[in-house]
C-alpha cells in the first residue's frame, strides 16, 4: 500500500485534520484522483456484496419462532436448571483442561473429550441426557410403553459404560461452551492467544 492509498483511507476514515487541502489536491492532481476513484470503487464493491435480500418467509416466521421459543423456555425452566448446572460443571472442566493440558502440540478433539469425560461418571451423564429436550421428546413420551423406556434406558447406560463416550457427548458439546461466562471465555481465549493457537 503506497503513501497515497494510506492518505485516502485516512480521509475516508475521517482521520485527516485538513480536509480542505485534501480536496484541493483531489481536484488538481489527476493521478491522485484516479487512485481515489479506484479505492472508492473497491469500497462500493464491498457495499454491493451486502445488498442482499432473504426470502420473506424467513422474516415472516421470526415472531412465531420467538414466541414459541419463549413458551418452550417457560415450560422447561425447572427441568433445564439441572442440565445448566451440569453444563456449568463441564465448562469448568474445559477451563481446567485449557489451563493444565500441555499445549505444545495441538490436541485432537477426541483427546480433549476423553480427558473431559474422565471426570464424569455414566450416571451423571445419563441424567444430563434425560434432561435433553430431544431425548425427552422420544424417550419420555407418554406414548411409549414402560418396557420400551427401560430397554432404551438400559441401552443408553450400557453405551455410556462400555462404548466410546465421546461420540455421544459430542451431541452436547455446544451446550458446554455456551454455558461459559464472558469472563471464562476471556480467560480461555487469552490462554489460547498466549500459546499462539489463533
Amino acid at each position: 500500500m503506497n503513501e497515497n492509498h494510506e492518505l485516502i483511507l485516512k480521509y475516508l476514515a475521517g482521520l485527516i485534520d485538513d480536509e480542505e487541502s485534501f480536496k484541493k489536491r483531489l481536484e488538481a492532481d489527476e493521478n491522485f484522483a484516479a487512485e481515489f476513484k479506484k479505492l472508492s470503487a473497491g469500497m462500493d464493491k464491498v457495499d454491493s456484496f451486502g445488498k442482499v435480500e432473504l426470502n420473506d418467509n424467513y422474516f415472516n416466521s421470526m415472531i412465531p419462532k420467538v414466541r414459541s421459543s419463549m413458551d418452550k423456555k417457560r415450560s422447561f425452566i425447572g427441568r433445564r436448571s439441572f442440565i445448566y448446572s451440569v453444563s456449568t460443571a463441564m465448562a469448568t472442566v474445559i477451563i481446567f483442561l485449557m489451563f493444565n493440558i500441555n499445549f505444545s502440540s495441538r490436541m485432537h478433539s477426541d483427546e480433549v473429550f476423553t480427558e473431559l469425560m474422565e471426570d464424569y461418571n455414566s450416571e451423571e451423564l445419563l441424567s444430563v441426557i434425560e434432561e435433553d429436550d430431544y431425548f425427552s421428546m422420544f424417550y419420555l413420551s407418554d406414548n411409549l410403553s414402560e418396557n420400551y423406556k427401560s430397554e432404551v434406558s438400559l441401552g443408553v447406560e450400557e453405551y455410556l459404560v462400555f462404548d466410546d463416550q465421546s461420540s455421544l457427548l459430542s451431541l452436547y458439546r455446544d451446550e458446554y461452551i455456551d454455558q461459559l461466562s464472558d469472563e471464562e471465555m476471556e480467560l480461555i481465549l487469552q490462554k489460547l492467544d498466549n500459546k499462539n493457537f489463533f
Binding site: I94, S109, V112, S170, R173, D174, I177, D178, L180, M185, I188, L189, L192, F197, F198
Partner: peptide
C-alpha cells in the same frame, strides 16, 4: 468468541 473456542476444541 464462542465459535473460536469451539473450533479449537471440537
Amino acid at each position: 468468541r464462542k465459535n473460536k473456542v469451539k473450533r479449537f476444541v471440537f
